[in-house]
């Protein structure tokens, strides 16, 4: 027992010393390649706050990590997708956003604030929104035009399909192909989607949510899922990479800034959110990584090329049948999780 106390004391003093001497730090927990380095550099230059950028590749991994750190406040900002904002908010894992410290919130698209997931945006501020659609390498995929999610099930793509490493998105396409909602909470429908997806598994070469464009660029996969921003970035290196709005409907999502409970540097987190909401910064981000900014003032600053890029900014027709990701609740999540584990473990 004494030893334990001693270890604790040692830990306390050592961690205590180290945090005092270092310059101010903002711990940003974010998806891979989801924030241009230039933005971080400019923020540091202006405020002197160093941004430490650590990455995750799924909402589940981010959530598990935060739970593991158990409100120790080691992360100052994270970027969950809509349905996790709702979940984390309800579970008390988030710090309230102090809107008085924010600048530029009023410039955000009214359609993307005050949503069901977080009324009045008490806990979250929209960062970017985007779509998850079909991608294929036009130089390698022959025959009929690729139009629908169901085309992935074609035998000729065996060993050439890529899926994102994202439970909800993968099930979304399974559900849509069967004609159900991508936000289904019905265990029977989820099970049916699982069974449909197991038929796809022999074709699946890899799951990737770190940089879904890479397997296409590296020539490993020729068809499959991709995020629109990744498609934009991928097209720069590989013009034959096509982005398709599938007939069954594309997946639409929104990622928001949240401040985890007890964040050590909530002050800097607010500063950073305000910094990102500046029109010129938001525009820079959207142009650089290809996702759509919810910032209306920023959209006016975009170059025509980006503003008219249907991959980044879909037209209303593109969004026919599109579904916005919603929170399905803990019970349904457990069902999804179980089948997801089974899907990834199946041979």
């Amino acid at each position: 027992m004494k030893k334990l106390a001693l270890a604790g004391l040692l830990a306390a003093t050592l961690t205590g010393c180290s945090s005092q001497e270092e310059p101010q730090v903002l711990n940003l927990y974010n998806w891979s390649e989801y924030m241009p380095q230039e933005v971080l550099d400019r923020f540091e230059e202006e405020t002197g706050i160093q941004v430490v950028y650590t990455t995750y590749d799924s909402n589940e991994a981010m959530y598990a990590r935060l739970k593991l750190l158990d409100e120790s406040g080691q992360y100052d900002l994270a970027l969950p997708s809509t349905y996790y904002v709702n979940k984390m908010r309800k579970e008390g894992l988030l710090e309230k956003i102090n809107h008085e410290k924010l600048e530029g919130f009023e410039k955000l698209d009214p359609e993307l604030v005050n949503l069901e997931i977080d009324p009045d945006n008490q806990y979250s501020v929209p960062y970017l929104w985007g779509t998850t659609g079909l991608a294929y390498d036009a130089s390698d995929v022959e025959g009929n035009e690729v139009k629908a999610w169901a085309d992935l099930w074609d035998d000729k793509y065996e060993g050439r399909v890529m899926l994102t490493n994202d439970m909800r998105e993968v099930f979304h396409i399974g559900l849509r192909v069967l004609g159900h909602s991508g936000n289904s909470t019905d265990p029977e429908e989820i099970k049916a989607a699982y069974e449909k997806l197991t038929e796809l598994m022999p074709s699946v070469r890899t799951f990737n949510s770190d940089a879904p464009r890479m397997p296409y660029l590296e020539g490993e996969t020729d068809i499959g899922m991709i995020w629109n921003g990744e498609a934009v970035m991928g097209e720069e290196d590989m013009p034959s990479l096509e982005y398709v709005y599938p007939e069954e409907g594309i997946i639409v999502w929104l990622d928001s800034f949240v401040i985890p409970k007890n964040a050590e540097n909530a002050e800097a987190a607010h500063q950073f959110i305000s910094f990102v909401m500046r029109p010129e910064i938001s525009a820079l981000i959207s142009e650089d990584i290809g996702y759509a900014t919810p910032n209306l003032a920023a959209r006016e600053l975009l170059s025509d090329e980006v503003a008219n890029d249907r991959t980044s900014y879909p037209t209303p027709e593109d969004l026919t049948n599109a579904e916005f990701q919603k929170d399905v609740g803990d019970d349904a999540m457990q069902v999804y999780t179980r089948y997801w584990e089974m899907l990834k473990s199946g041979q």
């Binding site: 711990n27 927990y29 650590t54 750190l69 080691q74 890479m214």
Partner: peptide, 20 residues
Amino acid sequence: SGPSYEILPLRIYSMVRVGL
């Protein structure tokens, strides 16, 4: 490990997972 002390192998791991 936690975010307050990031070490090299984990940095490399996240880089390697992104691609070449």
